[in-house]
Design a protein around this nucleic acid. Structure first.
Lengths: 344, 344
DNA sequence: CTGAAAGCGCTTACAG
DNA sequence: CTGAAAGCGCTTACAG
């Protein structure tokens, strides 16, 4: 016989109260002990831990979220899933967050600030413990949402030009520097007419473009006609067609700096089809060192970007922020590396 | 002056009760009306909808999950994020689920059944509304967890050999048939010694292998020495090295069927480096029609697999199951298509 | 078709 | 350092 109403909605789940009963303390003490709050007698912590393990207790995330206004979800906003760059970021971040007990909620913005805002609104309903967001450029509503929500946030990939006291937390590298560095490398190898071929034209591509401009201007070799910008999504096929276009230009271009490796890979393959010798007739370089760039024929010279490290470091920083730990610095520059191979 | 304890933990959030007050009904009626439960007077539904819109009410997912034992999360378990195939699956599923109001929780199993089990355990704590899981082979504990949890589940990619009354919900295509079909195509083009080059050796690769075997056995051309299996992860570099190995075999192989396009792409690039004419000396075919296969030189013959459609159809089916709608059939075969290009 | 009561399983805010 | 009470914002189960 059960007392009336006693087990009305019982779910059979082991709860905090069950642990409390076994440990001989109050539920709130169990809560505190298990969350590792200090100000709990070490002896009690031990008893609670034992009882919890004995019963196989696992906290209910929903109840926790409802009571505390904070879930164990971390939202990550990336532009695309079809660019390996962002998948690497997601993979690394997700892995790191998981190790700290957080679940990753993905949002795909399609490089659209309105979609980004909408996604953020939805994510915020889940009271995420933290937020990982790509880039530093967002619309006003998005910025307001981030500020009002008080959710700890780390920006991925980009670093602000001039850090000041308002510098947000961010992990990435200097895109402009990377663009300039690759361009200088091409100059050092004797190239004079170096085209820049950009697709998508997101903020990071534009920064690489500025870097390229800067480097050419330093040498007095800048020419507006060397800028080939296409807002379409980056792809091998687009790289191939941009390559053919640029190849037809006169005076002839002697190098092309593609803003992303998939474009450059497409160009390399187009060169093969067309019988254009690379790097003899024209040098080709890419950006990001994506899968396959080292396998190309000729192997692709590119800029290796630390995207997995960025995902990992940003997630680590975010977990620190969530835990209220002071961060040594709001800005982590993970740098980049020029990888010279056969295509330049 | 506020009444004592009145706003003690108020969060400023618009709640169901606020809507109820404005609409002049009870909270539970608001709850029912907003969830579209029938058995609510249409006139009331209208008043509630209006009041809800006026106040900008949004349900709290955590409260909902706690009370109903069901969240609006859908967990998706995939082997890897580093294989474009699964990213396409994830992208499509995520998009479809989002449109139906579900959040996607990703789990990466690394082709490891123990990790899969562990992930499922964690995901289940979040009381997901549904589950999308890759493949049909799981360990006993995983199968038990799925059964006990009662969470609706759809399997991705694979279809059972012989469907029976216990057939789980699944969306995919017949891997074995696809393997056989490609092999027959190579045979029809006059190839006699067709090697199968497989990596990763997950269940789907093995099924393609069986298909290849079947097709060769039909013609009396099967030879164990034509099976090249490597448990390492699939990559361009591995494809290149497998290509070189197979090329050295005698009697000479006149075609290689790679179990994944990245391997085949790597082989094509290796052929270029080595100066081996494809398809004259040796034909090369791949599987999946991944990005870039159409751009290769020569362009790669492959099997186009409907992974985006699989992700979408599986998500749609899952949403139906979550809503308790009867499904016309537990099994959806989305087929495949042989794409003949220049490499065969 | 509608509602009052109870409950989901935690944490917050107060006390002591 | 510990606890009793209240509350988070919904839905379930029971009545009518």
């Amino acid at each position: 016989m059960q007392p009336p109403h006693q087990r009305k909605r019982s779910t059979g789940r082991v709860t905090l109260s069950d642990v409390a009963r076994v440990a001989g303390v109050s539920p709130i003490t169990v809560s505190r002990a298990l969350r590792g709050e200090r100000s709990v007698d070490p002896a009690l912590v031990k008893r609670v831990t034992l009882a919890s393990a004995e019963l196989g207790y696992v906290p209910d995330p929903a109840a926790r979220a409802l009571a505390s206004h904070r879930s164990n979800h971390v939202a990550i906003l990336i532009p695309l899933l079809s660019n390996a760059l962002f998948v690497d970021l997601l993979d690394a971040a997700q892995r790191t967050l998981k190790a700290s007990g957080f679940q990753t909620l993905i949002g795909v913005t399609h490089y659209d600030q309105a979609q980004e805002e909408q996604l953020l609104r939805e994510q915020l309903l889940h009271r995420p413990a933290g937020l990982l967001i790509t880039g530093l450029e967002h619309n006003a509503a998005t910025r307001d949402l981030m500020a009002q929500s008080q959710v700890p946030c780390v920006h991925l990939m980009d670093l602000p030009q001039r850090p000041d006291t308002d510098t947000p937390y961010c992990v990435g590298f200097r895109q402009t520097d990377a663009g300039a560095a690759m361009t200088r490398r091409l100059l050092a190898r004797g190239r004079r007419r170096i085209a820049f071929a950009g697709a998508q034209l997101d903020p990071r591509v534009m920064q690489r473009l500025y870097g390229w401009r800067l480097a050419l201007q330093e040498e007095g070799l800048y020419d507006l006609n060397l800028e080939w910008l296409n807002p379409a999504a980056s792809s091998l096929a687009l790289g191939a067609s941009m390559f053919e276009q640029i190849l037809g230009q006169s005076p002839p271009v002697d190098a092309i700096f593609f803003c992303n490796d998939d474009l450059a890979q497409g160009a390399l393959l187009a060169a093969l089809r067309l019988g254009i010798p690379v790097p003899e007739r024209i040098a080709i370089s890419g950006f990001n060192d994506l899968t396959g760039s080292d396998q190309m024929f000729p192997a692709l010279t590119t800029v290796r970007t630390p995207r997995a490290k960025i995902g990992e470091a940003a997630a680590t920083m975010l977990v620190g922020l969530i835990r209220g730990e002071a961060q040594p610095q709001p800005l982590i520059d993970l740098g980049f590396e020029i990888v010279e191979r056969e295509s330049t």
